[in-house]
Every structure is written in C-alpha cells, then in structure tokens.
Design a protein around this nucleic acid. Structure first.
Lengths: 357, 357
DNA sequence: TGTTAACACGCAAACGTTTTCGTTGAGAAT
DNA sequence: ATTCTCAACGAAAACGTTTGCGTGTTAACA
C-alpha cells in the first residue's frame, strides 16, 4: 500500500525545499530549468496530485457545493441533482448531498454539519416540515456566516438568496385552460395542503384559469389531500379518497392534479368507474416523470424541466461564489450586495399525450 | 457577515492560549474549572463549531464517503443512495456523489478527483463503458493507495474489495419457475447484451429454470437488446423491436424481462396485439420501481431491495474504515488483510401482482 | 526550609499546501 | 576592488485543529 506522495516527500527525496517543489510543479520561472524538469519528472512518476483538503484549508474554499433536498427517490429531485452535477463538474466543483427526509431537524443538522467548512454554498429545496413550522433561522444563520444559498422549487420569500422556481402558477393556468378549451365544463382539482408553496400556487393557477373563463369554482370540485397520502405506502387509502371524491362529483369531465401520482391514481379510479379517458374525462398532471410517460393512457403533463432548474441553480451559486472571491480582494462594497439576488423562473411546458383531447 | 469563529479568535479574546481553548472545549481536566466555564460559555455564545476541513487535515480522514454511480435519475440507484445516506449519517459520515453517466472517462476523472483527499472510501457501481472496456486500473490504483472500495450491483471479480450484489441468478430462476408453475410453455426472455454482468446472470437464471423443468431453450425466444434502447429517448424503437419479436414468436405465453422498462413496454405491445395479461401471456420484470406498481395491469417483479443494498454497502465500507484506524495504531498485519473481503448477497423477492396468475 | 508533586496552562509540531520574503552566490557594472 | 543585480532557491507563515511536552505556581510534605 503506497500512500499518496506529498510535496514534503518529493522535496526530501530530491534534496530541495518544499517551496521549490511547489513552484516547480506550478511552472514558476523562479526555478531553474534543470531542477524544474527533474522535479516534474519525479512528480509525474509518483503520480503526485495535490491534496484537496490541504488546498481547501489554505484557500478557505472547498470547491464543493452542498445539496440539501427532502428526498432522493423522486424523479424531480434526482433530475435537478443531475443538472447541478453537470454544471458543477464543468466548473470544477463537487457536490455533496444531504437528505432531510422532509424533516425539519434533519434539515438543520445536515445544514450545520456541512456549514462547518465542508462546502462553499448550498443549493436546497425546503422540507415540508420546515415549511409548516415556518422556522427559517438555519438558513439565515448560514447566510449571515457568508455561505450563500440558492433555493429551488420550494422557496420562501423572506430569505436573502438566489432562487430558481418553476412557473407553477402559469403552468397550472395553461393546463386548466387547455382543459377548458377542449370542452371541459366541470374541472376538478386534486391538490395538497396549502403550506407547500408549490401546491398553493398550482391551486391558484387553477382558480385563475377558471375565472378567466367566467367559470365559478366549486369547493366540492377541489380535493385537498394530506401529504402523507402521497407516500407509496398509502396507495390504497389514496385510491379510496379519490374514488369517494369521484362518487360525490358525478359530472367531472376534466381533472387537474398537482402531481403525477394523484393524476395516475385518478385515472385508475376513473377506469374503475367505467369512465373513458379522454372521452368522458380528461386528465392533466403536474411533473413529467416516468409514470406519465408509461401510464395507460399516457398522461398529459406539465413538465418542470428539473435538469434545467439544477443547471440554473448551480450557475447562480457558482457565479456568486466566484464573485465573492473577487470582492475578497477589493474588500469593499458590502452595502449594495444584498440587492442583486436573482429569482430565475423556469417556464413550464405542457406535454400533450393521450389523456387529453 | 460574521465569519465563523475560530479557536484562535476565542483564545485572543479571552487572553489564553489556543491549546487551552481546545482543551477546555473538549472538557479536558487539565484546565481549571473557572477557565473552562468561561471558555465554554464564550464558545457557546459565539456558536463555535470546529472546522471540518482542519480536522480532516489533522486526522487524515474526512468522514465522507464517495458514491460513484452511472446515473441518478434512476429508481434503483437513488434507492441505494438513500440506503447509504441513512447509514452514513447514523455513523457520522457524509456522502459526496459523482456521476459517471455510464462513461469510462468520467468515472476515472471523478474517481481521481475525489481520491485526492476528499473522501475516505468509495461505494460504486461500475459504468457500462468500463465494463465493456474491462479496464479497471483506476479501481486498483485507488485501492493500492489505501482507499477502500465497496462495489454494488455491477461488480467485477478481480478487484480486491467488498461487494454487495443482488442475487440476480436465483431471482431470475425463481421468476421463471413461477411462470412455469402457472402453466407457461413458451417463455420468452428480453435481456441486454452480455457484458453487463447482471444481464448475463439474469439470462443464466432464465436458462437454468428452463433446464430444471426439462424445457429446451429456444434461441428465437430470447431477445437481446442494445443498451441504448433502454434510454427513454428510443422508446418507439424499443417498442417496434419488441413488437417484431412478438410477431416472430406467436406462441409466447410467458415473458421474463431483465428490467422494468422492457417489461412494461412488452405489456404495451401485447395489449396492442390483443393479448390479454395474464390470461394469454404472463409477464415478470426485474427491478421493482414505480413503473411496476402503477402499470396496467400492475407488474409482477423481482425486488432488489436497493435501500438494503445501500445500507449494507455503507456498513461494509465504514466497518473497514474504522478497522483501518485501529490497524494504524498497531501497525502490523498487512499480509492477511486482503483475505477477508466480503461479498454480501442480498436476496431478491418476488412481488406478485396482476401480470401473473 | 528545601523538595516535590499536583495543577493549570503555554509552546510548538503536525497535517499538506501556497506564497511572501528573505538569502546566497555569481557575474556585471562602476 | 567594491557595489549592484539577477537568478535560483530556502525559511517560515498561514489556513484551524489536536496533543505531547515543557514550565511556572502553589501547596503539601519531610
């Protein structure tokens, strides 16, 4: 087992000083041609690579970004990660991942863990529990320590950071408009509780589309489901809830669901009730995952472009990190800095498949 | 922006030495009661947390493990990550993720990048390209540098490391036996090219099950697909290939597919050809993902227990890392060490749903 | 009173880098 | 002969920790 070779060892072996080795390897012209060649050859032979940790300590930056998400077995989130990773790698960064599992305390723990020097900045999506408690002190503290954050998808307004969000509102408006334009008169909505910001926005979009078409929304056409029902374990409960909902609203001819699972389950129920899709009832779901593509019939969805979100978030974060670098040199302009936080909106796209006319 | 406070700053502020602060915070009894209280109070007030990078440098271990996988937008892999993350967190480790995107060079680059001090050990699944080239020098080099590796799912034999594998062979045997026992006479197989070890094993299992039942395998009943067809982009091509396959083999009454996508697509084709599932043809797929659960009819699958795989892999790696710690102290027994690499086999489970009788 | 032990703390090395600021020697300029 | 100027290199600090060892003070002991 040959341990990694260090500058010190090379220096000793070649009977020069550490600084000479360091300079020779960085092609400094302060070092004589001959010595430089010798050192470089030796280093190459022993496959010298500078130790990242030592570099991190010296430069006070790790070149890694921390990703903090609620769940990883999830099409949308993993797509975002892929986007982040691509850009991060391109720009010389690594990614380290923390999972909150939708829990507030795990989010805090993970954050503190990584904030102690392990990462240069965060890209995160807030856990449901945090959103429910509305306790954002950990974000604020992290930021006040000089660690920038970029939030995506699930964001809150009162935090000073860059954000990348999906245009949930307009996406929903368009989806529902599509249903209206294809003749739906009684459009139902299956959504989540309001504290999840995206659920709220999608609900608002639904209402807006109805209003624009002078359709009066009916409370009975809106089904708000507890989030735990989204868990794969409670599939049967979810199914029954939706079935009950259908029974209570016999005239439903259009359905908009705020996620894929709700939509697909609703289709299953519709079929059970002998409703034909899209003839009797049209369905549109939010999030374009693998389910939508392979459902029967394939599901018309609103794509969120998760990868693009990740890429944008990564760019925003790294831009800010490298901007901070320059500011460190100049050492001024502290006042105007909080002004220019951006919020990038990623447009959604309606992907039409067989569940709509 | 208040930067994180360091030992040095505390020492200066309280007019003691750095060592005193360090010891006071670790509750050393070498420090007087009064001083200790004072320092601890001060540290708590300023929310002192030791800098991970500095600790890593000093201890020569980072308490992070590197995960290297071909793809993250993938149910199985993300499940494994979840398993790893859970155990890692429990045992005080972080995880850093690298994506090879099934490319050899990206795998090598990522590996070298992380091996330079960023991580203590790897958990990885080999990329297809690497498997194809059969070039494993980067694994060997990493290991020879004293960085342990745990491979999962896609493994190769001639590398000295712990492994966690799925019982692909027996899983397949059982699946095909199930088909036989429910009356299938002409069982087809849809698989991948042989260089992906798991595909090969699953094919062997299929053959074994046939043989045990004295059924002669027919080459015409085996469809080997190029891997690129697994990509979501080529769905239509995949569909046509399978349709052609069905046309050529009219008597197929059972089908075993080595992944979910093949199975679901085959069901789609079967339906198109007016075959009823499971009456006319039964289908079983490998990998229990979200598709299987929501397909119509729901798909009988072989579950790989991805999370369990991740958990096991994490335990194996961390056990070895902490065992290495002790050996560093003792400084001996270098010879017997390569003997005790474990290969843990995670049993599969046949999850029966509606695509089989 | 002199010796000693316990106590409470500081110094400095070490982890592996980069970089600033010397220092040395030789040849050129005065 | 003396000063100056480079070229070529080394020493040491710094990043933030931990820890072995040294040291000064005090109190207890003979």
């Amino acid at each position: 087992m040959k341990r990694k070779v260090t500058l010190k060892q090379i220096a000793k072996e070649l009977d020069v000083s550490i600084s000479t080795v360091s300079r020779a390897l960085s092609n400094s012209k302060e070092i004589g041609e001959e010595t430089r060649q010798k050192i470089q050859a030796f280093a190459k032979f022993y496959n010298y690579k500078p130790n990242n940790i030592a570099l991190s300590l010296k430069n006070r930056k790790t070149k890694t970004i921390g990703i903090l998400i609620p769940e990883i077995v999830h099409h949308f989130f993993s797509t975002v990660i892929r986007g982040i990773e691509i850009i991060a790698n391109q720009r010389g960064y690594n990614v380290i991942i923390g999972l909150s599992n939708e829990s507030f305390s795990k989010e805090v723990i993970n954050m503190e863990m990584l904030a102690n020097g392990s990462i240069d900045g965060f890209i995160l999506s807030i856990s449901k529990e945090t959103l429910l408690h509305q306790d954002y002190h950990h974000f604020k503290e992290t930021i006040s320590q000089g660690i920038p954050i970029v939030m995506f998808d699930r964001v809150v307004n009162d935090i000073d950071c860059d954000k990348v969000i999906v245009d949930d509102y307009n996406g929903s408006v368009n989806a529902v408009k599509k249903l209206i334009s294809t003749g739906c008169k009684n459009i139902a909505l299956i959504t989540t509780m309001d504290y999840v910001s995206v659920g709220k926005l999608r609900t608002q979009g639904y209402l807006q589309a109805l209003e624009e078409s002078k359709i009066h929304p009916k409370a009975s056409l809106i089904l708000k489901l507890d989030d735990s029902l989204a868990l794969e374990e409670h599939l049967d409960v979810l199914e029954k809830e939706i079935e009950q909902f259908f029974m209570n609203n016999e005239k439903i001819d259009g359905l908009f669901a705020v996620n894929e699972l709700y939509a697909v389950t609703a289709m299953k129920v519709a079929r059970k009730l002998n409703l034909n899709i899209p003839e009797d009832i049209q369905v549109i779901g939010f999030t374009d995952g693998v389910l939508s593509k392979h459902a029967r019939p394939s599901l018309t969805t609103i794509s969120q472009h998760g990868q693009k979100i990740g890429e944008q978030a990564a760019h925003l974060l790294i831009d800010r990190l490298e901007l901070d670098d320059e500011e460190d040199d100049i050492e001024e302009v502290d006042f105007e800095r909080d002004m220019n936080f951006k919020t990038v909106v990623i447009e959604t796209e309606l992907i039409e498949r067989d569940s709509t006319k």
